[in-house]
Amino acid sequence: MLEAKGINAFYSRKQVLFDTSISVKEGEKVILIGPNGAGKSTLLKTIVGLLAPTKGQIAFSGEDISSWSPQRRINSGIGYLLQNENIVPGLTVEENLLLGAYPIKGDLLKKRVEEVFEIFGFMKGRLKDRAGFLSGGERQALAVSMVLMKHPRLLLLDEPTAGLAPKAAQNILEHVKKAQDVIGVKAVCLVEHNLKLALEWASKVIVLVQGRVVFTSDTPELFINNPEELEKYFFE
C-alpha cells in the first residue's frame, strides 16, 4: 500500500534520514519506534510531502507520489496527524471538523460528521465549543477525527497519545481501531513512545535509529512482555 524506498532527508544541512525504506501493507498496523531524534516524525513528514527528500521514492497504492504536492497526497487517501498543533484552537469543534473534511459538502459531509460521533461520542455535545477549551484527550480525539473526515485509506499518526494519561492514551488507540471498522481505514502507521501500549495494538514494528531502519518484525506480540528487547536497539 505504501512503499518508501531509499529516502534521504535534511533539515537545513543536517541529514536526518539515511537511505531509509519502509513499507506498509493493506491490513497492517505498524508502529514506528526509536529514540528521540531518530527521524520517525521526519519520515512521516516526508511521506506526506511536508518535507522534500533529496533522494528516494515514495509509492502509494502502486502510484509514484514523490512529485505530488501534500494536498494531492492527502486527497488521494493518506491521512496525516501532526504531532503538535493538530487542531485550530480559535475555531469551534464543528469548524475544525469541516476544515478536515474540505472540500466535502452537503449530505456526504453530514454523514461524515455522524461517523465521527459514532467513533467519538462526546463530540456530539461539544460541536459549538471552542476547540482551545477541550481537554488534552478531547483535543487528540478531535485531531484524529479531522484526519478521518476525508476517509483516508492509510493513516499516518505522529504520537497521537503524546502528553495523555495512560487511560486516555489507551482510549485513543482503541478509537483508532474502531475508526478502521467504521470508515474502512486499510492500514495505520503510528509513531509512538509508549511501547507496551503500542505493541499490544500493532501488527508490525519498525525500529528507527539515527535515521536508519535497524529492525523490523511482524510479530510485535513477542515483545509485549519484554520491550527492552526492542529498546536495546536504541543504544547500539
Binding site: 501534500p70 492527502i74 486527497n75 496525516y80 496527524l81 501532526l82 493538530n86 476544515l99
Partner: peptide, 11 residues
C-alpha cells in the same frame, strides 16, 4: 495559527 495543519489537512 497552525500553518502546518492547513497543509497536512490537504487544504
Amino acid at each position: 495559527e497552525t500553518p502546518n495543519l492547513v497543509t497536512a489537512l490537504g487544504l
